[in-house]
């Protein structure tokens, strides 16, 4: 296989992640190259969030190799090159904060702690807010926005860091219709500009035309990795009635008969 010219953004070799002595994700091989928009699908509890948090250093790296932009995770210091959009149902703030104030946080890792925001910083913040379609509401307080608008504020915050890869955890979950459309529009715009993305989701429908590749996880392992078209075939093959489909032999009910069971319950 010829080496690709651009180094991969993410390169996992039999990587495992978890919490403490509990391993949630194991044996994952995954490579993401510049320009790809990868949807990470899978049922609840399949380890999607643990995997992306593992990439960001938020869950423990327990084994295998993890390369971020060519650097092993342990030595990776250029955190701004990977932008993180965490899963939040709302940006519940105990104090007031405007959209601009939250998005400006994305610029902080770019300058030393003693330096105030420059004009360039402020321009990038404004541009990031425009990119998610919230320019009209830049001065609004985030708590007054709808769930989907708040989700876009978080995307803008990640964009303000000017990352090479955006990692998003469930950006469309529990979002109203107008915001779903606006969110998909936002992601489409980013993809058109060549932003690479790794999007954890379980609603592919909203993002189908943006995604270039699908990775599907189940119980801590990757069980599908391929282009969108092949995924449809994969799903069809695993649908009820297919050759993959089978019913486990129903287990007989556990025998009853403890000292407190009524005799007629035994059958």
């Amino acid at each position: 296989m010829p080496l690709s010219a651009a180094p991969s953004l993410i390169d996992l070799r039999s990587a495992s992640f978890g919490y403490g002595d509990r391993s949630v994700v194991s044996g994952v091989d995954l490579t993401i190259r510049p320009g790809e928009v990868v949807a990470l699908l899978g049922p609840n509890g399949s380890g999607k969030s643990t995997l992306v948090k593992g990439l960001l250093g938020l869950t423990e790296h327990q084994g295998g190799q993890v390369l971020l932009l060519g650097t092993p995770r342990e030595h990776f210091r250029e955190h701004t090159r990977i932008g993180y959009v965490p899963q939040r149902h709302s940006l519940s703030t105990s104090v007031r904060a405007t959209v601009t104030e939250i998005v400006a946080v994305g610029r902080l890792p770019h300058r030393p702690w003693w330096r105030p925001a420059s004009r360039e910083d402020r321009e990038i913040v404004a541009a990031s807010i425009r990119a998610v379609g919230l320019a009209d509401r830049a001065g609004e307080e985030v708590a007054s926005l709808s769930g989907g608008q708040q989700r876009r504020v978080l995307i803008a915050r990640a964009l303000a860091g000017q990352p090479e890869l955006l990692v998003m955890d469930e950006p469309t979950a529990g979002v109203d219709r107008a915001s779903q459309v606006a969110l998909a529009e936002t992601l489409r715009g980013l993809a058109a500009r060549g932003t690479s993305m790794l999007v954890v989701t379980h609603e592919l429908a909203a993002l189908r035309d943006v995604v270039t590749r699908i990775v599907c996880m189940d119980s801590g392992h990757v069980d599908f990795d391929g282009p969108t078209a092949a995924y449809a075939a994969h799903v069809a093959a695993h649908a009820p009635g297919s050759t993959y489909d089978h019913t486990d032999r129903p287990r007989p009910p556990a025998p009853v008969g403890g000292p407190f069971d009524r005799p007629e319950a035994r059958s």
Binding site: Y84, P86, T93, E101
Partner: peptide, 22 residues
């Protein structure tokens, strides 16, 4: 006054601040 933006960021979203390398 000097650290206000950083204190704000950490108090607002500790997980994000960690992921951003703060």
């Amino acid at each position: 006054l000097l650290l206000r933006p950083r204190f704000f960021a950490v108090a607002n979203d500790e997980e994000y601040a960690r992921a951003a390398g703060m």
